[in-house]
Amino acid sequence: MSKENLLLIFTRNPELGKCKTRLAASVGNEKALEIYKFLLHHTAEITQNLKAKKYVYYSEDIWEKDIWNNETYDKKLQEGIDLGLRMENAFKAGFKKGYKKIIVIGSDMYDLTQADLENAFNRLDSSDFVVGPAEDGGYYLLGMKTLEHSVFTDKAWGTPTVLRDTLKNLEPKKINLLETRNDVDVLEDIKEHPAFQTLLKK
């Protein structure tokens, strides 16, 4: 099973002033970086034992020594002028390597577990695509068995229309929708969340 499955993890290099900028507008750059590192650790925890090949795609530079264990994760650099092209290039590379089921996630989801990812791979057995809708109108997970170019183009990335436009691209295909989850972009996303209270009170 693991030889067929590939998980792509898209991540920003955790550098001061360069990640979670919308959150930083409310809590400041240092706290935003701390929260992002907390989310990265969570993402590593829920993916390290997943029975799938794992590629971590960095936004700026590949870091050899960080939370992503070099024996568990293959490290790569995102390539493309926007998020869509970067994701498409990562999917293309995975299919070229022979993987049958490929899923991409970001690294800013606290409400995601290893079981959720296993479930997403399993659902690709009976559908062409699997999509995890985010509460903000985007998606937190996208999986496919064949490359679908249209989902990566003509999108206003980071806006509430992304999920709607993506599902429109996939209309004739068999899509499996996962539960709607909340990714972390702004203070409102974590203000009431118990897991973030200690970080916010520091």
Rank of each mutant, 00 (worst) to 15 (best):
M1K: 14
K3M: 14
L6H: 10
L8E: 02
L8I: 10
F10R: 03
T11L: 15
R12E: 05
R12P: 00
K18V: 00
L23A: 03
A25I: 12
S26L: 00
V27P: 01
N29W: 01
N29D: 15
A32F: 06
L33A: 04
K37M: 10
L39I: 04
A44E: 14
A44V: 13
A44Y: 04
E45F: 14
Q48K: 14
N49V: 01
V56C: 10
Y58K: 00
D61T: 14
E64P: 00
K65N: 13
W68E: 01
N70G: 12
E71A: 11
T72D: 05
L77W: 07
E79G: 08
D82E: 12
L83R: 08
R86S: 15
R86F: 01
A90H: 02
K92Q: 11
K97T: 12
K97S: 13
K97Y: 06
G98N: 06
G98A: 09
K100M: 07
K101Y: 13
I105V: 12
S107P: 09
D108R: 01
D108V: 05
Y110H: 09
A115R: 04
D116A: 11
L117C: 01
N119F: 10
N119K: 12
L124K: 01
S126Q: 10
D128Q: 08
F129V: 05
V130C: 00
V130R: 00
G132L: 02
P133Q: 09
D136K: 15
G137C: 06
Y139H: 04
Y139I: 02
Y140Q: 01
L142F: 15
L142H: 07
E148D: 08
F152E: 05
K155G: 06
A156S: 11
T161A: 12
T161E: 14
R164K: 15
N169V: 10
N176M: 07
T180P: 02
N182Y: 09
D185R: 14
V186S: 10
E188A: 14
H193C: 05
H193Q: 11
T198Y: 06
K201W: 01
K201P: 03
